[in-house]
Design a protein around this nucleic acid. Structure first.
Lengths: 194, 194
DNA sequence: TAAACTCGATAACATATGTTATCGTTACGC
DNA sequence: GCGTAACGATAACATATGTTATCGAGTTTA
């Protein structure tokens, strides 16, 4: 959060600089849990290297909601803001380098910076974008078949398909691994690439 | 928007009062289009009596996103804010009494009221709530079967099931009318009510 | 290197859901 | 009142998707 804002709103950078030293740097292997479903989010997560996924567990099988990569920040917003148990788990998919900023510093920073004229407009932008993201995802779920969603992923976010193991992709698309395999082989037949 | 805010933030009511006279009152029959897909949203819609639905068209069949009832306000936010063509259609489902407030007054009101200390916090609340709504809808689509979603609707928003014709409910749940009928008869078998 | 594990493909079968068509009921315009 | 359209139930069939099991190729670990 704080971190990409720094690029977008350089005039507020003195605030960011003041708090960056409070971050904790971590090098972790793949499959490390950064936030566990049911616990309260205590820090904001920033990814320097590697990637993570956010998912929730439903009767033993994972449902992946989102992937995050280098230079992205995340947390469970409702848990972080309201001190409620998180409904999602966040785990690394590759060996990663991440930074954690404890919640109390985030709050302090928010309080300080909220007096800045640009800040609230910025927050609105963030929220509007986030809403767009969720609503377009929702619309895609309602409107498109899994095959279309997979093709969208291929054209619009190919780095995900290249980098993420396929069964996580299936979980993200909302289909079984078997069915994603079928989709792929069907597409391969229709469009030979030689 | 403006209208429920008036209840929640009475200290800002002088602002609302100033702009309410600019609304246009309309009595319309059922199936009246209030905003058409592809056109730019020009006014904010408030429902005094009746109900409407927001939907988009996909190859001839409707996909309903949301229902709105008395004392609720709506518009296509992206279209309204960015002057872009709306991706949804808004139409009445019953004979309705609605109020329209042209966009220019909404903008003026926003500008005036944005200096109020409470305003931006209020906007953040609104957006956070909206995001929760979208994300929980999305999670429900990912996690639950149509049957579970229908039961959720029955328990959490029974007024919708009672009031809205069933084929719109099917469109809202993302299933065919036939399948919703099957779901209902299956539930009726499991739980006889005599 | 052997064993264990991860990942992905595929087949066979089961279930969920869509499509089309038909029918009966109700509501509504004329 | 009559004709028509809207609404919903149901059947028959087609397609999409899930489940389970098996196989094989890499990778990691001891």
């Amino acid at each position: 959060m704080l971190f990409h804002f720094k690029d977008q709103f350089p005039h507020l950078s003195t605030y960011w600089d003041k708090y960056l030293p409070h971050q904790k740097r971590l090098e972790v292997p793949a499959k490390t849990i950064l936030l566990e479903e049911g616990k309260v989010s205590q820090q904001y997560i920033y990814i320097e290297k590697g990637c993570v996924r956010a998912f929730f567990n439903n009767n033993g099988d994972d449902k992946t909601l989102q992937f995050f990569f280098e230079n992205e920040g995340l947390t469970s917003l409702p848990s972080f803001v309201n001190d409620t148990p998180s409904d999602i788990t966040i785990e690394t998919l590759e060996p990663s380098v991440i930074y954690l900023l404890p919640k109390k510093y985030v709050s302090q920073l928010m309080d300080e910076v909220s007096h800045e004229p640009g800040f609230l407009k910025m927050m609105l932008q963030i929220f509007a974008r986030r809403q767009m993201h969720y609503s377009s995802l929702l619309i895609s779920f309602i409107r498109d078949t899994p095959e279309q969603r997979y093709q969208n992923l291929l054209t619009e976010r190919p780095h995900i398909v290249q980098r993420i193991p396929q069964h996580y992709i299936a979980s993200y698309l909302g289909v079984s691994t078997v069915h994603l395999s079928r989709i792929k082989s069907k597409l391969a037949k229709g469009k030979p690439h030689f």
